[in-house]
Amino acid sequence: MTTEAITLDSHSQSTKPPSDAASHLLHADFGERRRKWFSHFVVALCGVSAVVVLVPLASIFLYIINKGAPGLSLDFFTKLPTPVGVAGGGLSNAVLGTLTLIGIASAIGLPIGILAGVYVAEVGKGRVADLIRFFAEVLSGVPSITIGVFVYAVLVVPMKTFSAFAGGVSLAIIMIPTVARTTEELLRMVPSQLREASLALGVPQWKTSIFIVLRTAAPGILTGVMLGIARIAGETAPLLFTAFNNRFLSTRLDQPIASLPVQILTYATSPYAEWQQKAWTGAFVLVFVILILNLIARLGTRRQVGGAS
């Protein structure tokens, strides 16, 4: 009886000040006002940062379009460079050279990158995979000029010449970590039920990895390939030591070859106005090619995600 009275009493006491609680809810105290102000401040800071990120990107684009577009013509893609003082001409050697270098780099880098990704995701689970992933990450962080110097030492010096092949190898080395990483991540997204379905049908592991898992992830891996190509298309530093440059159209892999980035460097640092104009136009073309590759990659990812859900 007494305990009941006590509990009743304490109950009524705890529910007694409802007016206090209500006023607490309705009237902000000083601490709360400060908290709200700080929240607005942080949101504003984020907004300003976002604008700061976009400004250089937008201004680079506008500047390059502004400076580069006027020099754009069919000649730019079909004619060779002219000597100083001679009007006209184009950068067909650099356009073709960049395509050649991307081709060599893809021929070497894509199979290695994709198979390394398959290995890490499907076969070498555990410590070996962790080790390979770690080295791939380190490799993707190595400055590209270092890779250029390395290829110079192991290919250019023994071959006694700069070459398209050496340029392609250096770009392939830069490309491999990106491709391997994307491949691995996309293979992990493939539902394990498909792997099991295949294995339970008596399909060997390697065939399951290639014909079921890799095939299912193929659209997404294409995205990784596009990003990998976009990454190397604008590389300049490694090419200085490997592909060097060439004023003429070259299709030989054992000879120096021109490329858009190196040609841009050469022309942009020259004192001649026509050359500088060509450098701007070259930059414009390069940025657009990379932009288009990124767009294709983005569309590919969206399709992959849409298809998986």
Partner: peptide, 10 residues
Amino acid sequence: VFQKPNPFPT
């Protein structure tokens, strides 16, 4: 045969 139907999507 598995819990979730798993035809090969490709």
